[in-house]
């Protein structure tokens, strides 16, 4: 497995002189299985535009493009690059798009493909040349063929969002974004008029259990790409409930889960290269038997597993 980052930023693209080093594109990850001649893409943020261009140069000359896109969720920063993914305009391209959708929402096709309508874009989805299939994905374990298995887990984000665990041969690659630790949403102050002891106790129990399940989901990963948008101080002061994690929390969790290498991901659009360098000084290390190697994800960076 070869993993390459095409977009590592959260929320909105933020190109400019202050984000040159880590990159300003929103999430897109290339997962290449060279010996199988198979390509899996995770998320279609603005980074997928560059990946599409790369595929036009390197994959198309070898024959029609066949690929799968796994969307973590359908928030805009994770799907906005789709209309600019050039292979969809090429006859012969076969594309499968997987992702979760909430009950009350529209279908995956309406949400993702719906960006290609005249109100947003000059080309309609019906005009795309590629053969595109949309597949609604849930929590579970799936056989992707070629010896690749996929496990999915619902994370904690304001809409339904899936973490992915790919296993191939003896390697494990996980993603856990966008997410924040599950927490007890119920009032725990006995003085508050809405306090209910049953809800408070069960809420605490379920939150702890779900956090343990996320750690087991990532257990022993050779690489974990992990949401880490905030410092603990930022998270607690004004970002709780936004669906993103702190560096402090994920570093401790990765250690508990025996992660070998963790790439911190979904950088805040306000974070400059200099600030990330400073954070890297504090959190990154080369790893040891007990501690995971920690890096900050950056556009163009590749990891071989």
């Amino acid at each position: 497995m070869n993993i390459r980052f095409w977009g590592v930023r959260g929320s909105i693209p933020c190109p400019g002189p202050l984000t040159m080093k880590y990159g300003g594109n929103t999430p897109c990850i290339e997962v290449r299985f060279e010996e199988l001649d198979r390509l899996i893409i995770i998320d279609a943020g603005s980074g997928i535009r560059e990946l599409g261009n790369y595929m036009m140069q390197h994959d198309l000359p070898k024959g029609p493009i066949k690929t799968e896109i796994f969307l973590s969720h359908t928030h805009w920063d994770h799907i906005m690059g789709f209309p600019f993914f050039t292979p969809t305009y090429i006859p012969g391209t076969k594309l499968k798009i997987y992702g979760p959708v909430s009950y009350e929402g529209e279908t995956l096709e309406q949400i993702v493909g719906g960006q290609l309508s005249y109100r947003y874009f000059p080309v309609r989805e019906a005009e795309l040349a590629a053969d595109i299939e949309y597949i609604h994905l849930k929590e579970g374990r799936f056989n992707l063929g070629d010896g690749i298995s996929l496990t999915t887990k619902y994370l904690n984000h304001p809409i339904l969002c899936l973490g992915y665990r790919f296993e191939y041969k003896d390697k494990i690659f996980c993603t856990a974004f966008d997410t924040e630790p599950f927490r007890n949403l119920f009032c725990t102050d006995p003085e508050d008029p809405s306090f209910d002891e049953g809800m408070a106790e069960e809420g605490k129990l379920v939150a702890r259990e779900q956090n343990e399940m996320v750690e087991s989901f990532c257990l022993g990963a050779d690489l974990l790409i992990q949401d880490a948008q905030y410092t603990q101080e930022e998270y607690e002061s004004s970002k709780t409930g936004w669906g993103h994690s702190s560096y402090e929390y994920v570093c401790a969790a990765a250690k508990r889960a025996g992660i070998k290498r963790m790439a911190l991901f979904h950088h805040d659009p306000m974070r400059t290269d200099a600030q990330i360098d400073e954070l890297a000084e504090k959190y990154c290390n080369a790893g040891s038997n007990e501690n995971p190697e920690i890096i900050f994800a950056r556009e163009g960076f590749q990891i071989d597993l």
Partner: peptide
């Protein structure tokens, strides 16, 4: 089947924490 959660949930408290 919409959510495919493997364990049946019989409490609203649990549903609210897990699904938001």
């Amino acid at each position: 089947a919409y959510y495919g959660l493997p364990n049946q949930i019989s409490s609203l408290t649990r549903a609210i924490i897990m699904l938001g």
